[in-house]
Design a protein around this nucleic acid. Structure first.
Length: 972
RNA sequence: GCCGGGAUGGCGGAAUCGGUAGACGCGUUGGUCUCAAACACCAAUGUCUGCAAGGACAUGCCGGUUCGAGUCCGGCUCCCGGUACCA
């Protein structure tokens, strides 16, 4: 090997690693484990762009580094291969999503392998593989077969609940369930007298996955449910059809049972504070009180129907302000609305409810500028003073939050204040510390209560306790902890997801009861369908599958023609909520992962992924993990010990500027270079960044690739108004990297031109891993030069003498290193190790650059130095290091099995320090002093200094600050 | 709206504990090598001012704490992510 040839070198070692299965990992109890996981990608049709590998490169560096430290490293990769884009494509083309997904995965793997990741590919998983989703379905079944016992504070098999019912009825059952079920009471005798079907129906309300009505974005024209981001301004993004809020029967996940543990667990894991804070806010624990407001009944009102309850229940965190309540606000969807609406108000209320249906939740929450609402005509009574309180509807109250009802205190809440002003409702001050109530609400808790009956004169703390006690005594309310987090909707009205392993049998109060299929029938595979659209009757796509009915095995005669399956599928997050366990034991046919594997690998030591998953994937995964732990299948309470968010790589778009009025029929288009557009009317147009170098456009490539731009419709060729130096300079802007903006840079192109090692180093060099930053291919030459310079420490550069050029000559020597060389090496070892431990990869790349610059300047080609440097660099640039490691005489392909060089601080000891000397905080000179020089000595010497004397100008300084080994500041 | 994050030269960024702002790299300019180009190497490069030595101004904006602030505190502006069926 002579000159640095990245194509040859990298190709050679990738093949070697593949053939020798260099990165294959086995369970090895003799060694400490380290589990490094990347958030697995959804394999999109566009393939990887340079933004994707950022996190993978960082985690691969850590993996390789940990191997050098002697850890047994599990570093796998797989695919989150169910998802909407493939389904969308299937709807458009009729192509089965499994086929496109398969092709996309093949592309991803090819691209990933080119970058030289040390993945154990034998452990790859795909969520859409029946062998995988069998276990996703199995976990769903386990959730269905479990309930949450608040007394033991964990999930238990449903059998323990049945046992309690059968022996003691509901008396000592303390389960997580909805309010209505909570109120259920029966004795053991009553329970035992129930029919099998009746008792089964009751258990459905306790299980960790259950059927319930949930609000969804229903698009009647498309016959389907839409995601919030598929809805824009109340209409579907595709087609622009109206979308309404509709209640639909859905499978739900009882994540709220884990709310407290999800919250407290955050204190035990090493995630960024911001990420934990996002989860805390999402869980949204608030301590307050639940209060019942009696509905005022009067015959003449002409109320349409009796209400299901005689009171409105609200949750409030400020029960202390209850004497300031001047109205009540219900969500338009609140169940009491029809019963509370008087004849006189009916028309207005119905119109309002209808309008609210057309708005998305996010819209309703975000819009604080417009105040809207409607009076129902009814009143309720404040339990404290029996004042009549008018009941309004307003769409800023959401049915899914709390009780869907708010006691409005305009003096203490900004939104209530605006509402009261709009509708001319009274604003009653409740605390003497409240200020400017004629201007705005004041939510202070300071001062003493006024206008507040039994709590007048009290402080916040006293008042809250007094009120809760008073309410509890009379059964009108109680202290309550509320969570903002709601149970998660699990059903999706889609095709490309895991089928839910449930079938329906007639019976029960709703006419149909859900049952799990037999475990032996797993996986329940996705059936073939003729189209990937909902059925004409609005059922999910699975409703199209022919002869897709469940036939239980023990008695196939049961249920003529079989039973109907659940037609919804699981959401994208189902398969990703447990996948890190499958990697531990990917081929196990008997369990999602075997107990030995789980005991050894435990959980993920380092998890790398995007912060956009903060409240979705990362919360659901923690939920499922806690559930699996409760049921004894896994050993750890938390799945991801340490988590790093890699920032998004943004695109950097380039623009050409077309003169307005040119480019139409009969007028040749005119493109004006960036520095000539001032004062001209131009249209900026995206141009492919791959034909732009350093903002200079390759005009010929532009002509060839975009005839639609570079010719008028009748074929007149474009003219280019160039810079004075004859180039066309493009404008640039940072945007999201996407096809439509022509700013996508593909890693394959970079690997081909510069090599994977350069790509890896450059991506790390771009900036801190956690920060978003734009991609700009321009800077890559710097890291490419670095690697060649590194290479030249080993091989003499080919001098271009006449005749045959001399190819690189091996110039590594066996001489003993000098102190200066050892200092350079050990400074780098220390810096790089510290940086990796702190996940500061960008600064370690510059440390390598500094090191190679300095060794080059020292003309150092000594094995003792270079050998350690190769090891240190190998996690970053594995191909070139594997090559040089072998060239140094080590066993080929063994760089990843070597051990890390050890830092020796003795080489870095300094005997003097160059002090910056400040006058009034501004550095004016520097003076070198011995490290152990006494501060008083230093002060004297500084004041005697010529430059300092000049600034002193004969005066005595007010103060001299000497910070040893840091700085001297002379204050005048 | 709410929650979270960010802003430093022409560009990406460094400054890890409140102590020399701009490491490292790109770009730009000048030079060496070459018939030429590429590669490589050398030098300069925050802005303003000055022949120079030097000086003044500089970390999104306004204010504060401190001998000393990019870093800490208070108040803004703009950009990015999430907001429960995108993944």
């Amino acid at each position: 090997m002579a000159d640095y040839n990245h194509r040859e070198t990298e190709q050679k070692w990738r093949q070697f690693w593949d053939e020798n299965q260099t990165y294959r990992t086995e369970t090895d109890p003799a060694k400490s484990k380290y589990y490094v996981l990347d958030m697995f990608p959804y394999p999109s049709g566009a393939g990887l762009h340079v933004g994707h590998p950022l996190g993978y490169i960082a985690s691969d560096i850590v993996s390789r580094y940990k191997r050098l430290q002697g850890f047994n490293v599990l570093h796998p990769m797989g695919f989150d291969s169910f998802g909407l884009p493939a389904e969308q494509y299937a709807i458009q083309t009729g192509q089965h999503p499994a086929i496109t997904t398969e092709q996309n995965i093949a592309t991803y793997i090819k691209q990933l392998k080119q970058i030289g990741f040390s993945y154990d590919w034998s452990r790859e998983v795909r969520t859409s593989d029946p062998g995988y989703y069998k276990w996703t379905q199995w976990i769903f079944m386990e959730l269905f077969r479990s309930w949450y016992n608040k007394d033991t504070d964990r999930a238990e098999p449903i059998e323990t609940l049945l046992h309690k019912f059968a022996t003691n009825g509901t008396t000592d059952v303390n389960a997580v369930c909805d309010e209505e079920t909570q109120a259920l009471q029966f004795t053991a005798a009553e329970w035992n007298a129930l029919s099998k079907e009746q008792s089964y129906e009751i258990t459905l309300k306790y299980r960790l996955t259950y059927l319930a009505d949930a609000v969804v974005n229903w698009c009647p024209a498309l016959g389907t449910v839409l995601a919030n981001d598929e809805v824009k301004d109340g209409v579907s993004e595709r087609g622009g059809y109206p979308v309404e809020q509709k209640l639909m029967r859905q499978w739900m996940m009882r994540i709220t049972a884990y709310a407290d543990r999800l919250l407290s667990g955050l204190d035990t894991i090493d995630w960024s504070e911001s990420l934990k804070e996002q989860q805390r806010n999402w869980i949204g624990k608030s301590v307050g009180a639940s209060v019942k407001f009696q509905i005022e009944r009067s015959e003449e009102k002409g109320l349409a129907q009796a209400t299901p309850h005689s009171f409105i229940e609200v949750f409030t965190t400020r029960v202390d302000t209850i004497y300031g309540v001047t109205f009540m606000v219900l969500a338009p969807e609140h169940e009491l609305v029809p019963g509370l609406t008087t004849d006189a108000q009916r028309e207005a209320v119905e119109a309002y409810v209808q309008a609210a249906k057309m708005r998305s939740e996010r819209d309703r929450m975000a819009d604080t500028k417009t105040v809207s609402g409607v009076f129902t005509g009814s009143y309720c009574l404040n339990p404290l003073n029996n004042e009549k309180v008018p009941i309004f509807l307003a769409d800023y109250v959401l049915a899914g939050y709390g009780t869907g009802a708010v006691m409005a205190v305009p003096s203490g809440d900004a939104r209530d204040y605006g509402f009261a002003k709009q509708f001319g409702l009274p604003i009653i001050p409740v605390l003497d510390a409240q200020k400017d109530l004629d201007q705005q609400a004041d939510n202070t808790k300071e001062g003493r209560y006024i206008n507040s009956g039994i709590i007048n004169g009290m402080t916040y703390k006293e008042a809250t306790a007094t009120l809760i006690a008073w309410l509890e005594e009379r059964g009108l309310g109680r202290g309550k902890v509320n969570f903002r987090m709601r149970d998660a909707v699990f059903s999706r009205q889609r095709y490309w997801g895991e089928p839910v392993p449930v079938y329906f049998k007639e019976g029960g109060s709703t006419g149909q009861l859900p049952y799990l299929i037999d475990e032996a029938d797993l996986p329940l595979e996705l059936p073939a369908v003729d189209k990937y659209l909902p059925t004409e009757t609005g059922e999910p796509p699975l409703g199209r599958a022919e002869d897709w009915r469940y036939h239980p095995s023990p008695s196939p005669s049961q249920g003529e023609g079989g039973f109907e399956y659940e037609l919804s599928t699981m959401p994208g997050w189902a398969g990703s909520s447990w996948y890190w366990y499958r990697y531990m034991d990917p081929q196990n046919p008997d369990a999602f992962a075997g107990p030995e594997a789980i005991r050894y690998w435990e959980n993920v030591d380092l998890y790398m992924g995007g912060s956009e998953h903060a409240t979705g994937h990362l919360l659901y995964s923690r939920f499922w993990n806690k559930f699996l732990k409760d049921r004894g299948y896994v050993t750890q309470e938390e799945p991801f010990k340490k988590l790093i968010n890699q920032g998004m790589i943004q695109g950097r778009s380039n623009f050409v500027y077309r003169l307005k009025g040119t480019g139409s029929e009969g007028v040749a288009p005119v493109f004006v270079s960036l520095n000539k557009i001032a004062g001209r009317e131009v249209t900026p147009l995206h141009v492919d960044v791959n034909i732009v170098d350093n903002d200079v456009l390759d005009v010929e490539a532009f002509r060839a690739s975009r005839p639609d731009f570079t010719q008028s419709p009748d074929g007149l060729p474009a003219q280019f108004e160039l810079e004075d130096n004859g180039t066309y300079v493009c404008g640039a802007e940072v945007e999201k990297m996407s096809k439509s903006k022509f700013n996508v840079v593909n890693p394959d192109t970079i690997v081909e031109k510069y090599g994977a090692d350069t790509l890896r180093m450059y991506e790390m060099f771009l900036g801190p891993i956690e920060q978003a930053k734009p991609w700009n291919t321009n800077g890559i030459d710097g890291t490419f030069r670095f690697l060649r310079k590194f290479w030249r420490l080993f091989y003499k550069d080919a001098p271009t003498t006449e005749g045959q050029p001399e190819t690189g000559r091996w110039i590594v020597t066996e001489q003993a290193p000098t102190p200066a060389e050892l200092k350079v090496l050990h400074k780098t070892i220390k810096k790089v190790q510290d940086d990796i431990e702190n996940y500061s990869f960008n600064t370690s790349v510059s440390a390598f650059m500094v090191c190679v610059n300095e060794l080059t300047a020292l003309d150092c080609h000594k094995r003792a130095i270079l050998s350690d440097l190769v090891l240190l660099l190998s996690p970053y640039a594995p191909h070139i290091c594997e090559e040089l490691w072998a060239a140094l005489g080590n066993e080929p392909g063994s760089v990843s099995r070597a051990s890390l060089p050890v830092f020796n601080p003795a080489y870095l000891v300094e005997d003097s320090f160059e002090y910056p000397i400040q006058i009034n905080g501004k550095v004016r000179t520097t003076i070198s002093f011995a490290i152990d020089r006494a501060p008083a000595d230093i002060e004297q010497a500084v004041l005697a200094d010529e430059v300092v004397q000049k600034w002193l100008d004969g005066k005595t300084p007010k103060k001299v600050v000497v910070v040893p080994k840091r700085i001297v500041n002379v204050v005048l």
